[in-house]
Protein backbone atom coordinates (compact mmCIF):
# COMPACT_ATOMS: atom_id res chain seq x y z
CA UNK A 1 0.00 0.00 0.00
CA UNK A 2 1.53 3.28 -1.11
CA UNK A 3 1.57 6.57 0.72
CA UNK A 4 -1.27 8.03 -1.35
CA UNK A 5 -3.51 5.07 -0.56
CA UNK A 6 -2.80 5.32 3.15
CA UNK A 7 -3.57 9.05 2.98
CA UNK A 8 -6.75 8.36 1.01
CA UNK A 9 -8.07 5.89 3.56
CA UNK A 10 -7.10 8.08 6.50
CA UNK A 11 -8.85 11.14 5.03
CA UNK A 12 -11.90 9.09 4.02
CA UNK A 13 -12.33 7.66 7.50
CA UNK A 14 -11.86 11.14 8.97
CA UNK A 15 -14.53 12.58 6.64
CA UNK A 16 -17.08 9.86 7.36
CA UNK A 17 -16.52 9.93 11.13
CA UNK A 18 -16.90 13.72 11.03
CA UNK A 19 -20.08 13.49 8.99
CA UNK A 20 -21.59 11.00 11.44
CA UNK A 21 -20.55 13.35 14.23
CA UNK A 22 -22.43 16.20 12.54
CA UNK A 23 -25.73 14.36 12.41
CA UNK A 24 -25.45 12.80 15.86
CA UNK A 25 -24.29 15.77 17.95
CA UNK A 26 -26.81 17.11 20.45
CA UNK A 27 -25.32 20.58 20.55
CA UNK A 28 -25.13 22.38 17.17
CA UNK A 29 -21.81 23.94 18.22
CA UNK A 30 -20.19 20.48 18.31
CA UNK A 31 -21.84 19.83 14.96
CA UNK A 32 -20.03 22.85 13.55
CA UNK A 33 -16.70 21.57 14.89
CA UNK A 34 -17.27 18.14 13.34
CA UNK A 35 -18.20 19.80 10.05
CA UNK A 36 -14.93 21.75 10.07
CA UNK A 37 -13.10 18.41 10.42
CA UNK A 38 -15.02 17.10 7.40
CA UNK A 39 -14.09 20.18 5.37
CA UNK A 40 -10.41 19.82 6.22
CA UNK A 41 -10.52 16.15 5.23
CA UNK A 42 -12.12 17.06 1.91
CA UNK A 43 -9.45 19.74 1.37
CA UNK A 44 -6.87 17.04 2.00
CA UNK A 45 -8.48 14.99 -0.76
CA UNK A 46 -8.27 17.99 -3.08
CA UNK A 47 -4.55 18.37 -2.39
CA UNK A 48 -4.13 14.63 -3.01
CA UNK A 49 -5.77 15.12 -6.42
CA UNK A 50 -3.62 18.15 -7.36
CA UNK A 51 -6.45 20.66 -7.02
CA UNK A 52 -4.49 23.07 -4.84
CA UNK A 53 -6.54 26.16 -5.64
CA UNK A 54 -9.81 24.43 -4.73
CA UNK A 55 -8.27 23.11 -1.52
CA UNK A 56 -7.33 26.61 -0.41
CA UNK A 57 -10.70 28.06 -1.48
CA UNK A 58 -12.47 25.24 0.36
CA UNK A 59 -10.61 26.06 3.57
CA UNK A 60 -11.07 29.83 3.23
CA UNK A 61 -14.72 29.84 2.16
CA UNK A 62 -16.13 26.84 3.99
CA UNK A 63 -14.00 26.26 7.07
CA UNK A 64 -13.38 30.00 7.41
CA UNK A 65 -16.32 32.14 6.37
CA UNK A 66 -19.33 29.84 6.38
CA UNK A 67 -18.50 28.07 9.62
CA UNK A 68 -17.83 31.40 11.37
CA UNK A 69 -21.29 32.52 10.20
CA UNK A 70 -22.83 29.33 11.62
CA UNK A 71 -21.02 29.82 14.92
CA UNK A 72 -22.23 33.41 15.17
CA UNK A 73 -25.84 32.41 14.59
CA UNK A 74 -25.59 29.62 17.16
CA UNK A 75 -24.20 32.10 19.68
CA UNK A 76 -27.06 34.52 18.93
CA UNK A 77 -29.59 31.85 19.68
CA UNK A 78 -29.97 30.70 23.24
CA UNK A 79 -30.29 26.97 22.80
CA UNK A 80 -30.23 26.06 26.49
CA UNK A 81 -33.53 27.83 26.92
CA UNK A 82 -35.18 25.92 24.08
CA UNK A 83 -33.65 22.46 23.70
CA UNK A 84 -34.40 20.49 20.57
CA UNK A 85 -37.50 18.33 20.87
CA UNK A 86 -36.50 14.96 19.43
CA UNK A 87 -38.46 13.74 16.46
CA UNK A 88 -40.89 10.88 16.72
CA UNK A 89 -38.89 7.62 16.90
CA UNK A 90 -40.79 6.12 13.97
CA UNK A 91 -39.94 9.12 11.80
CA UNK A 92 -36.29 8.76 12.81
CA UNK A 93 -36.23 5.07 11.89
CA UNK A 94 -38.00 5.86 8.61
CA UNK A 95 -35.42 8.53 7.77
CA UNK A 96 -32.56 6.15 8.58
CA UNK A 97 -34.07 3.42 6.40
CA UNK A 98 -34.63 5.87 3.54
CA UNK A 99 -31.01 7.04 3.68
CA UNK A 100 -29.68 3.48 3.85
CA UNK A 101 -31.83 2.49 0.88
CA UNK A 102 -30.41 5.39 -1.11
CA UNK A 103 -26.87 4.28 -0.14
CA UNK A 104 -27.49 0.66 -1.11
CA UNK A 105 -29.17 1.52 -4.41
CA UNK A 106 -26.44 3.94 -5.48
CA UNK A 107 -23.59 1.61 -4.50
CA UNK A 108 -25.25 -1.38 -6.15
CA UNK A 109 -25.98 0.56 -9.32
CA UNK A 110 -22.50 2.00 -9.67
CA UNK A 111 -20.26 -0.79 -8.40
CA UNK A 112 -20.36 -2.74 -11.68
CA UNK A 113 -19.99 0.24 -13.98
CA UNK A 114 -16.81 0.47 -16.05
CA UNK A 115 -14.24 2.30 -13.98
CA UNK A 116 -11.35 4.56 -14.76
CA UNK A 117 -8.20 5.03 -12.79
CA UNK A 118 -6.94 8.09 -11.02
CA UNK A 119 -3.20 8.37 -11.33
CA UNK A 120 -2.21 10.13 -8.16
CA UNK A 121 1.51 10.01 -8.77
CA UNK A 122 1.52 12.13 -11.91
CA UNK A 123 1.35 15.70 -10.73
CA UNK A 124 -0.44 18.16 -13.00
CA UNK A 125 -0.58 21.92 -13.33
CA UNK A 126 -4.31 22.08 -13.97
CA UNK A 127 -5.22 22.78 -10.36
CA UNK A 128 -2.89 25.74 -10.04
CA UNK A 129 -4.33 29.23 -9.90
CA UNK A 130 -2.51 30.28 -13.08
CA UNK A 131 -4.41 27.91 -15.37
CA UNK A 132 -7.74 28.10 -13.57
CA UNK A 133 -7.56 31.89 -13.58
CA UNK A 134 -6.88 32.02 -17.31
CA UNK A 135 -9.93 29.87 -18.01
CA UNK A 136 -12.06 31.71 -15.49
CA UNK A 137 -11.36 35.13 -16.99
CA UNK A 138 -11.43 34.02 -20.64
CA UNK A 139 -14.26 31.53 -21.03
CA UNK A 140 -16.26 32.17 -17.87
CA UNK A 141 -16.23 35.95 -17.51
CA UNK A 142 -20.01 36.33 -17.77
CA UNK A 143 -20.88 33.70 -15.13
CA UNK A 144 -18.21 35.22 -12.90
CA UNK A 145 -19.79 38.68 -13.15
CA UNK A 146 -23.28 37.23 -12.69
CA UNK A 147 -22.07 35.54 -9.51
CA UNK A 148 -21.02 38.94 -8.20
CA UNK A 149 -24.58 40.18 -8.81
CA UNK A 150 -25.81 37.06 -7.00
CA UNK A 151 -23.63 37.95 -4.02
CA UNK A 152 -24.93 41.52 -4.01
CA UNK A 153 -28.54 40.35 -4.06
CA UNK A 154 -27.82 37.77 -1.33
CA UNK A 155 -26.26 40.50 0.80
CA UNK A 156 -29.20 42.86 0.33
CA UNK A 157 -31.63 40.02 1.00
CA UNK A 158 -29.84 38.99 4.19
CA UNK A 159 -29.84 42.59 5.47
CA UNK A 160 -33.55 43.06 4.73
CA UNK A 161 -34.55 39.71 6.24
CA UNK A 162 -32.36 40.27 9.27
CA UNK A 163 -33.80 43.69 10.03
CA UNK A 164 -36.31 44.05 12.82
CA UNK A 165 -39.86 44.36 11.56
CA UNK A 166 -40.50 47.66 13.37
CA UNK A 167 -37.78 49.40 11.37
CA UNK A 168 -39.15 48.10 8.10
CA UNK A 169 -42.68 49.17 8.99
CA UNK A 170 -41.54 52.60 10.15
CA UNK A 171 -39.68 53.29 6.93
CA UNK A 172 -42.08 51.59 4.52
Amino acid sequence: MGTTQILFWFLSVLAIVGAIGVISSKNPLYGVLWLIIVFFAISGHYVLMNAQFLAIVNIIVYAGAIMVLFTFVIMFIDLNEHPEIPKNIYLKIAGLIAGLCLLIVLVAALSHSPTGNIEMKNGTNVGLIKYLGKTLFNDYVVPFEISSVLFLSAMVGAVIIGKKEKEINARG
Binding site: I16, I23, K87, G99
Partner: peptide, 11 residues
Protein backbone atom coordinates in the same frame (compact mmCIF):
# COMPACT_ATOMS: atom_id res chain seq x y z
CA UNK B 1 -26.32 9.65 2.27
CA UNK B 2 -25.16 10.71 5.73
CA UNK B 3 -26.30 14.22 4.80
CA UNK B 4 -29.68 12.91 3.64
CA UNK B 5 -30.16 10.93 6.86
CA UNK B 6 -29.29 13.99 8.93
CA UNK B 7 -31.68 16.22 7.02
CA UNK B 8 -34.48 13.68 7.48
CA UNK B 9 -33.98 12.82 11.14
CA UNK B 10 -33.06 16.08 12.87
CA UNK B 11 -35.40 18.92 13.82
Amino acid sequence: CIGVVGALTRR
